[in-house]
């Protein structure tokens, strides 16, 4: 085939350009760590990368939700454990009050119980990260409106009402929150509740436990006719003792309800932990898949760069040798 000067030069320029262009692309691949410089480099990979990225990002969001839920579970569990301990003390006080030796000391035991009642309410008003954990969806002070004898913007409050025959102390614990569950998304179309409602933890209406404790308090502090017991040998009657035994049983029921909720929280925590581990594995696996599609095989890219470097230096060497000479150089 006849070779002309133009075709020789243009062929040479084309080849050198091609090597330079390959070098530039490999450099970008190594510098950015991404295999794809333009979308058109690999249309199939575009879909795969987007799909993996979407799944990773969704999983990361769900993982964060679960992590926050776990933190709240832990805070709720701690608060309920504290309440359970106080309630156990109250139960013990009730049992002690049935002992013969303590028959003249019921008001003393009652005073002790009153202090535990305060700590129960404090526990029920527990906040985690600015949220009242047992207040349902009324999580902030602003959403809690005191009515009647209530004075505080707290979910649970001990109020002093007019004494009655059935409630001679006039004490009552009110609940201003609600029993709605709070949930978060933990997967595609999957939600998990993250809160314990007051009703779950403290019985009917969210106040049953407190009502039982106050009833016991009333029995320790007041006689059958509603008059206060005195500390100087005001012995409990058999009827009092029977009543107290019944109330201790109610407090024990509340204690069991509370512990059952703690158990549920523990089970939920375990499930969250398992979900967390599963999501971790999914994220790791999907990142691996995405990496295969998206990331540069650095070793290969560097080898290709070296190969092109070599090709380029030979091309330039050969080019400078051939291109610079013609018959005209040998004519005298």
């Amino acid at each position: 085939m006849r070779l002309t000067t133009t075709s020789m030069f243009s062929q040479y320029a084309t080849n050198v350009n091609e090597i330079s262009s390959r070098q530039a692309r490999n450099q970008i691949r190594v510098f950015t760590g991404k295999n794809m410089v333009n979308l058109g480099d690999d249309p199939n990979a575009v879909t795969n990368i987007q799909t993996f990225s979407e799944s990773i990002s969704k999983s990361e969001n769900y993982k964060r939700n679960i992590q926050e839920a776990l933190d709240e579970q832990s805070a709720s569990e701690g608060a309920l454990q504290g309440i359970s301990n106080s309630l156990d003390e109250i139960r013990q006080l009730g049992v002690e009050s049935l002992q013969i030796a303590n028959q003249d000391k019921l008001p003393v035991l009652g005073e002790k119980l009153r202090k535990f009642l305060t700590s129960l309410v404090d526990g029920a008003n527990h906040q985690y990260n600015g949220v009242y954990v047992f207040s349902g969806t009324k999580t902030t002070a602003a959403s809690l409106t005191p009515t009647g004898a209530e004075t505080q913007k707290l979910p649970f409050e001990i109020v002093q009402e007019t004494p009655t025959a059935s409630n001679p102390s006039g004490l009552r614990v009110t609940f201003k929150g609600n029993n709605d569950e709070r949930s978060v998304n933990t997967g595609a179309h999957a939600t998990e509740r993250v809160s314990s409602t007051a009703e779950d933890a403290f019985g009917t209406g969210g106040t049953e436990m407190f009502t039982n404790v106050i009833a016991l308090y009333n029995k320790l502090m007041y006689k059958q006719d509603g008059t206060p017991r005195t500390d100087n040998g005001d012995f409990a009657t058999k009827a009092d003792r029977d009543n107290i035994a019944g109330l201790v049983k109610h407090v024990t029921d509340s204690y069991e309800t509370l512990n059952a909720e703690i158990g549920k929280l523990g089970a939920r925590t375990q499930r969250f932990d398992a979900m967390n581990s599963q999501i971790d594995e999914d994220i790791l696996r999907m990142k691996e898949f995405r990496s295969r599609e998206e990331d540069t095989d650095v070793a290969q890219a560097i080898m290709e760069m070296q190969k092109d470097d070599l090709a380029m230096s030979y091309a330039l060497k050969v080019g400078s040798k051939i291109m610079s000479q013609s018959l005209l150089d040998f004519l005298r």
Partner: peptide, 19 residues
């Protein structure tokens, strides 16, 4: 996001065809 990815894939295919 799948719909958006579909658009990107179409652009990518146009780019690959052109290239």
């Amino acid at each position: 996001r799948s719909y958006y990815a579909l658009g990107l894939t179409k652009v990518a295919n146009l780019g690959a065809d052109a290239s």
